[in-house]
Design a protein around this nucleic acid. Sequence first.
DNA 1: TCCCGCAACTAGAACGCTTTAGTACCCAAG
DNA 2: CTTGGGTACTAAAGCGTTCTAGTTGCGGGA
Lengths: 343, 343
Amino acid sequence: MRRPTIADIAERVGVSKGAVSFALNGRPGVGEATRARILQVAKEMNWRPHSAARALGGARAEAVGLVIARPASTLGVEPFFAQLLSGLQAGLSARSVALHLLIVEDAEAEMEVYREWASAHRVDGFVMVDLKVRDPRIEVLEELGAPAVVLGGPGRHGSLSSVWADDREAMLSVLEYLAALGHRRIAHVAGLPAFRHTQRRIRALRDSARRLELVDAVSVPTDFSDAEGAAATRTLLSRPRRPTAIVYDSDVMALAGLGVAGEMGVRVPDEVSIVAFDDSVLTRIAHPSITALSRDTFAFGRQLAEVMLQVIDEPGLRRDVKTATPRLVVRESTAAPGAWQDD
Amino acid sequence: MRRPTIADIAERVGVSKGAVSFALNGRPGVGEATRARILQVAKEMNWRPHSAARALGGARAEAVGLVIARPASTLGVEPFFAQLLSGLQAGLSARSVALHLLIVEDAEAEMEVYREWASAHRVDGFVMVDLKVRDPRIEVLEELGAPAVVLGGPGRHGSLSSVWADDREAMLSVLEYLAALGHRRIAHVAGLPAFRHTQRRIRALRDSARRLELVDAVSVPTDFSDAEGAAATRTLLSRPRRPTAIVYDSDVMALAGLGVAGEMGVRVPDEVSIVAFDDSVLTRIAHPSITALSRDTFAFGRQLAEVMLQVIDEPGLRRDVKTATPRLVVRESTAAPGAWQDD
DNA sequence: TCCCGCAACTAGAACGCTTTAGTACCCAAG
DNA sequence: CTTGGGTACTAAAGCGTTCTAGTTGCGGGA
């Protein structure tokens, strides 16, 4: 048999569709007795709302959109991303809001999908990740007027809300720790330079070079892949005056770097110290275990969900949430540089 | 201004809504010249389809549902799951199909969501994971008549399609390898006994005990968490006649087990060999690296997507795809048992 | 010349729900 | 006894699209 509609219920109870709609949505305009009868019949007939029909009328979609312009494989490879996703889902599912996920080729396609989903009321809001320098997606989301939360910041995300961590401060804490150990030649294997947080880390290194008396403070950009992380490490360690410490923008790259050091016979931490942005099981079980900037990524994702839900509830709202700054967890991969390395 | 509808376009071009609909969907029933004009105007007015309205008419939702009854944290912790998810996404996004993802408390809630999404045309089909013994979800999906693909098998998934790996054969390959090395006391730290694939592995061990002359072949059930994996390992290694080899049902548990062995001063692989079902970066970088059953999980997810799309295209279809059996990758965690361990 | 068939197009119902405007009724105040 | 206002409801108009059942006009064969 066909799925029951409110018209069927109305007919059976002997009232109008309107009355049924009121009753089912707990709205005034229908007596208690009638309401009870309607609810009863609806249950008997096993009725369920048809979200598409509701959406046509402009109701909530009970879903949040996440469009990612990255190769799909990163989803599974980067612990950071996987953790973030699960935190996000955890936060959303507490309110039975689904995550509408799509991976696309590039930012162009991503914006097109924003337009489609927004104009079709397919989702109630968007979570935007991988904030770039002068990101055109911001404008699109603003123009669409859809609730949106940007992962990353602060600043430069227009009227959109955001959730961010202080990358600058985190980078400084690493540099100060390394400088205190006596390191003066510190290299930075950065992520994609187009990302705002990458820029912020690069700038933090450059800015503190003088204060910390670093004689060499270079940032090498990569695409965040383990391959480029390994290549950058190889280049750095092949220099006549190689760095005594390398800071990696992700745990995956740090691990790759550690592997390269092993291959090249450069001992860690005796000859080179290694620090990773982002902590995960990878840094913990590596051998030697890797000193890393640790944060609760799952909680980060949950905060993202929380802000998203708030912004959906109150469309005018603009929140700007700074999450806890990642703190350094010292493990076996860092030590004072050997004496022979001093200038 | 209001978002443009086909009625607006129709008015502007001076044709009926029907004609516009035909033109926009590349259907016959409208002349070339008119079609071109309609497309032109639609572009000018920046028109976009409204999926909710389409869904009302019974069109595709261009989304696949995935409902998971697990704690959200597993999503990020289990490399297998993360990889699978990205493979699935990769396969779907090639056809611009989104993944509608929701995490729920339990199987009851999961089935309720199936009903809701199906009756609301919210998704075109479902991917079901974590197939259990006598799984009630199968019936629900069959009854709903929604296209669905089950991860796991073979058999016992009724009329639904499935994608599966041969767990039995995989387990046998591990056991034969260990037996060939000389192991006779082999323990198995299993996953959730409610899962079909867990059962299959347990049975494989039991069945081959006699043939391989195992004097001790016990399976210890766990919930797949690293905590229970560690606990089970502790119990096993505390026995007066402890096993000389332990097979773990996941890489996460194997890693936990390796940690416990370290704590207890039991040397790996000299005193106990360790094998993991599921390969990932975890097993590769552990110290010692862990012998594991390896498969291309990303490809597995992509196959899942492929079958899903096929079943959506051809609702009557029932496919049963066996994926490549995981093959054993021998690393440092396995060796012949020490002589003193022989009976 | 007439009719047939086909392509091009129109009108409007249908999809399931929400919402608004309106109606019927009752009770209380004047 | 009338009026005013509140409650309980009904009828029907959307929401944006697709689909079905026409209608028109035109070219070609008898």
